Every structure is written in structure tokens, then in C-alpha cells.
Simulated assay, not measured.
Amino acid sequence: MSNTYKEIDEKNWKRALHCQIFRNSIEPAFCVTFELDITNFLKKTKEKKLSFTMSLIYVVSKCANTIEEFRYRFVDEKIVLFNRIDTAFTYLNKETELFKVVNVEERYIGGICN
């Protein structure tokens, strides 16, 4: 399954004005911070002997994909809405003590918690 998108008609788009804030950014991004009780989530990952970090990445990615506004991107200077977003995270190599960015397609990360 390929990651497809549809082009947005900017003239009739309700978020066009907000989009102008990010249009000229080198790498447009934003951050969301919130408190969350993960007691039950942590219990389930331990019961299933799953990696907490990988499980959290999976859940956050799945949740982000349900929010349309998180799937907008610029492609060839046009605004597009992807059918899904993929994820990236940093990984610490314990031997080299260097971080690297790991890009994972949503379809691959889905197998972690099934």
C-alpha cells in the first residue's frame, strides 16, 4: 500500500491563513505537550513482554493518524493531505553512544503490538 495524498484547494480551505505561518519555514513543525496517566498501558506492555518505547511509538503514531490536521504537508509548494503519516524517532546506539534517526512506515510499526 502506497502512501497517497490529495492536493488541497488553498483558496477554499479553512486553514489557509494558518498555513501561511509555516509556508516559509525550513522545516515546519510544532510540539504538543500534555500529561497522561499510563498506568494501565505500562501494565499491559509488561504483561505482553513488549518494549515500552516501541509500544508508545506505535500508539502515538496510530493516534496521530486519526487527526486530519497532523497529516497535512507541503509537496512541491502545494498543500496536501496524506492518507497516513509515518513516524521517525531517535535511537541511542549503546556501543557508539550516538543517536540516529529511525524512519518507520506506519504499516511496519503496526506489527509491534498486534
Rank of each mutant, 00 (worst) to 15 (best):
residue 98 L to P: 07
residue 43 K to G: 01
residue 79 I to C: 15
residue 69 E to H: 10
residue 29 A to M: 10
residue 35 E to M: 04
residue 18 H to C: 09
residue 63 C to S: 08
residue 55 S to L: 00
residue 106 E to L: 06
residue 59 V to Y: 13
residue 4 T to S: 12
residue 57 I to M: 15
residue 30 F to E: 10
residue 44 K to Y: 14
residue 72 Y to W: 07
residue 17 L to A: 14
residue 76 D to Q: 04
residue 97 E to V: 03
residue 74 F to A: 00
residue 72 Y to E: 02
residue 18 H to Q: 11
residue 61 S to I: 01
residue 27 E to Q: 07
residue 55 S to V: 04
residue 105 E to S: 06
residue 14 K to W: 10
residue 18 H to G: 10
residue 98 L to Y: 11
residue 105 E to D: 15
residue 94 K to N: 13
residue 55 S to K: 02
residue 37 D to R: 01
residue 43 K to R: 07
residue 77 E to H: 11
residue 11 K to Q: 08
residue 98 L to M: 06
residue 104 V to E: 15
residue 86 D to A: 06
residue 64 A to C: 10
residue 63 C to T: 08
residue 111 G to Y: 00
residue 113 C to F: 14
residue 43 K to P: 09
residue 1 M to W: 07
residue 11 K to E: 13
residue 36 L to C: 03
residue 23 R to V: 10
residue 58 Y to R: 03
residue 2 S to C: 05
residue 37 D to H: 06
residue 105 E to V: 00
residue 76 D to K: 08
residue 28 P to N: 04
residue 90 T to S: 13
residue 4 T to R: 03
residue 48 K to S: 12
residue 72 Y to A: 04
residue 81 L to F: 02
residue 96 T to K: 01
residue 70 F to G: 09
residue 106 E to D: 06
residue 68 E to D: 04
residue 24 N to E: 07
residue 8 I to S: 00
residue 101 V to D: 13
residue 50 L to A: 12
residue 40 N to I: 03
residue 37 D to I: 00
residue 6 K to F: 12
residue 42 L to Y: 13
residue 71 R to D: 07
residue 76 D to P: 11
residue 34 F to L: 05
residue 64 A to W: 06
residue 57 I to P: 02
residue 59 V to F: 14
residue 103 N to K: 08
residue 14 K to G: 03
residue 93 N to G: 05
residue 36 L to Y: 08
residue 80 V to H: 01
residue 101 V to R: 01
residue 103 N to F: 13
residue 62 K to L: 14
residue 32 V to E: 15
residue 9 D to R: 00
residue 88 A to Q: 09
residue 46 K to M: 04
residue 11 K to L: 01
residue 21 I to H: 03
residue 95 E to M: 06
residue 4 T to Y: 14
residue 22 F to S: 01
residue 16 A to Y: 12
residue 106 E to Y: 02
residue 41 F to P: 05
residue 10 E to K: 04
residue 111 G to D: 13
residue 31 C to K: 05
residue 77 E to M: 07
residue 66 T to A: 12
residue 94 K to P: 08
residue 51 S to A: 00
residue 24 N to G: 08
